[in-house]
Simulated scan of single mutants.
Amino acid sequence: MMEMKDFITTQDWQKSKLDKLLEIAEDMKKNPLKYKNSLDGKSICMFFYNPSTRTRNSTQVAAYQLGMHPTFNSIKDSWIGYQSESIKDTSVVLARYYDAIGIRIFPNAVNYIYKEGNRILREFARWSDVPIVNFEDDQYHPLQALTDIFTIKEKKHQVEGKKIVISWAYHPKPLPYSVPNSILLMSTRYGMDVTLAHPEHYDLDDDIINVAKKNTKDSGGSFQISNNIKDAYSDADVVYIKSWGAKKHYGDAKKEKKLRLPYRDNWRIKAEYLDYTRPDSLFMHCLPIRRNVVADDDAIDGSHSVVYDQAENRLYTVKALLYELLKE
Rank of each mutant, 00 (worst) to 15 (best):
D99W: 13
A100R: 11
I103F: 12
R104Y: 11
I105V: 10
F106L: 10
P107Y: 10
P107G: 03
Y114I: 08
K115I: 09
G117F: 05
R119S: 06
L121W: 12
R122I: 08
E123T: 09
E123C: 04
E123Y: 10
A125P: 02
R126E: 14
S128M: 09
D129I: 13
V130F: 02
P131R: 08
P131Y: 05
F135G: 15
F135M: 14
D137P: 03
D138P: 08
Q139L: 15
Q139E: 15
Q139R: 10
Y140D: 05
Y140F: 15
H141T: 14
H141W: 01
P142E: 09
Q144S: 06
Q144I: 09
A145S: 14
D148Q: 11
D148K: 08
I149P: 01
F150Y: 15
T151W: 01
T151N: 09
I152W: 00
K153V: 03
E154L: 09
E154F: 05
E154Q: 05
H157V: 05
H157G: 05
Q158Y: 12
V159R: 01
V159T: 10
K162H: 08
K162V: 02
I164W: 00
S167P: 04
W168M: 08
H171A: 12
H171P: 00
H171R: 02
H171E: 11
P174G: 05
L175A: 06
L175Y: 05
P176D: 04
S178F: 09
S178C: 07
S178H: 11
N181C: 08
N181I: 08
L184D: 00
L184R: 02
L185H: 01
T188I: 10
G191E: 07
G191A: 03
M192T: 04
D193G: 00
D193C: 01
V194G: 00
T195A: 01
H198L: 10
P199L: 14
E200V: 03
H201W: 08
Y202V: 04
L204W: 06
D206R: 07
N210I: 14
V211C: 06
K213C: 15
K214L: 04
T216P: 04
K217H: 14
D218E: 13
G220H: 12
G220Q: 12
G221L: 02
Q224H: 04
I225G: 00
I225C: 02
I225M: 15
S226C: 04
N227P: 09
N227I: 13
N228Q: 04
N228K: 12
N228G: 11
N228D: 10
K230T: 06
K230M: 01
K230S: 12
